[in-house]
Nucleic acid binder design. Sequence first.
DNA 1: ATTATCTATAGATCTATAGATAATGC
DNA 2: ATTATCTATAGATCTATAGATAATGC
Lengths: 226, 226
Amino acid sequence: MEQEVRDSTQRVLDVAERLFMDRGYSAITLRDIADELGMKQASLYYHFPGGKEQLFLAMAERMFDRHHQGVVDALAGGEEDLRAQLRGVAEWFASQRPMKFMGMMHADVAALSEEHKEQLAQKAHGAMFRPLREAFVAAEGRGEIRAMHPDLLAGCFLWLMDGLSYGETRTGAPPRAAMAEDVISMMLDGLLPRDGVFVPAMSAMWPVAADAGLVDSGRNGQGRSS
Amino acid sequence: MEQEVRDSTQRVLDVAERLFMDRGYSAITLRDIADELGMKQASLYYHFPGGKEQLFLAMAERMFDRHHQGVVDALAGGEEDLRAQLRGVAEWFASQRPMKFMGMMHADVAALSEEHKEQLAQKAHGAMFRPLREAFVAAEGRGEIRAMHPDLLAGCFLWLMDGLSYGETRTGAPPRAAMAEDVISMMLDGLLPRDGVFVPAMSAMWPVAADAGLVDSGRNGQGRSS
DNA sequence: ATTATCTATAGATCTATAGATAATGC
DNA sequence: ATTATCTATAGATCTATAGATAATGC
């Protein structure tokens, strides 16, 4: 029975995570979640007496714990080599559903109480930002990369990894692994030629759609281009 | 009177843009917007008979038109030099309120009708994505940068510029101009040393907070770091 | 007559609470 | 007795519509 409780609550969190992360805190109702679970909206209060906000918070904390584990493990797996570490983190994020990290930390969090807002920000920071930042600091210490504000580096990388998942659905886009590899190469090698030679990119092999929109439909993007 | 109508409707759009972009389509009610304007919720239907969705759409299109102008002008101002062009675009975005582009194109757009969804995606693409992508293609054609999928390059840059505005409120963060310059340098020069020399970064001058959270409060970020 | 607002309200949700019910464990 | 659900519903919004009102332009 103890086991049952756990499974059931975890299933609620699974659905909540998928829906909240996909459409945002305000857009999702408890009924949406309950419907997907085949239960009634009021039944969710058995698992989360604090209601919607408590459910969202529990979902977010569980998610951050998971990502913390994934990021820390990935960083540990490529020790002494930043590129290998970043590849590992990229693989981790590719294995997870998009979290829309910043979208959540901004729009969704605004709907929470002041206390929970701060709590979640701290959690997110400790879970993903801090370990990644430390990896950049260590790489700089080893003389592997130049000095740049480590918060900026960690933020850019996390941000880009999260961003890759948005583009995933586009038709004609290079596969995610190729994009991640190129993003890492862009950060480390840069786009300018090195020693007069161009570093090859994986995504360069994919054909560029004539005028790739989000889908391939007629263009009505912009008329009044002055 | 004609003039009056225009001003009044534009003021509605101003407030709608600020609120929608800040907290998302679902989180903002027509009452929120009307209150801020000092009018009644029902009065908004005079300006936008189609209601909330029409108001959001009009707001987004006006915003994209503005950004199209800003991006195109910035790109034209630094012709034949990608770094100058990107600096110009970065300055443009710094002069504008954060648009939370992707957050909007994903979560908010999901609440719209299928038709408007597509319409907005096309608009956003034509307004900002396409001109930027073409600048990357041209730079590659000039031999300035290596070949990489231009959609990826344009997406990364836009994404990073949008991301910079999120971090802006953090205490102790380097000023936005320094961050933008470093992000551009990271993309073009890379983090690895060039010809044995480290390219200097502006943000490297800013002190790294001992354990910079979003604010400087006690750490409760992560306990169970296995 | 037109413009730009307002008041009032119908109808549809949404969150949260109270209490019933069925199944399982002691 | 406990667990996990359900039904029913109060109370609070939210969107949208109908129609009144005051100010301005012809």
